[in-house]
Simulated scan of single mutants.
Amino acid sequence: MQLAEDLWDSILSTPDEVPLNDEQKQELDRRLEMDRQNPNQGSTWQSVKQRLGLTE
């Protein structure tokens, strides 16, 4: 779990260095638009962690 967090933190610190192809960019745009249209759909990170037993 720590390794995944460390990897994610390294990506967040240099997001412009993560290469994306056009298909990946389109998918991210599609998902962002879905979130904008339905902001209450989905789960919060906190609730996901609780379901996975990662919080007390």
Rank of each mutant, 00 (worst) to 15 (best):
L28W: 06
D29L: 15
V18L: 15
P19H: 02
P19M: 09
R30T: 02
E17Y: 04
R30E: 04
D22M: 13
R36N: 15
D9Y: 01
E17L: 07
L32I: 08
P39E: 02
Q37T: 05
I11M: 06
R36L: 14
L7A: 04
D9A: 03
K25E: 04
K25Y: 03
M34T: 02
L20A: 10
T14Y: 10
Q24E: 15
D22V: 13
R36S: 11
N40M: 05
K25M: 06
L12I: 11
D29E: 14
E17K: 14
D35Q: 12
E5K: 15
E17D: 10
D22I: 15
N21P: 05
S13Q: 12
P39L: 01
D35S: 06
P19R: 11
L32T: 09
D16R: 15
N21E: 12
T14H: 07
G42W: 02
D9S: 01
W8K: 08
L7F: 09
L32R: 07
Q41P: 00
P39D: 02
N21I: 08
Q26K: 10
T14P: 02
P19N: 02
T14F: 08
W8V: 10
W8D: 11
D16K: 12
W8T: 12
R30V: 01
Q26N: 08
G42K: 06
D16H: 13
N40I: 01
W8G: 04
E17T: 05
S13M: 12
G42D: 01
N38C: 08
L28C: 14
D29P: 00
M34W: 06
D9V: 00
L12P: 04
V18M: 13
G42R: 03
N21G: 03
D16T: 14
N40D: 03
S10R: 15
N21D: 13
I11W: 03
M34F: 07
D6T: 12
V18E: 13
E17P: 01
L20Y: 11
P19G: 11
Q41W: 05
E27V: 13
Q37N: 12
E5R: 15
G42C: 01
L7E: 09
D6K: 10
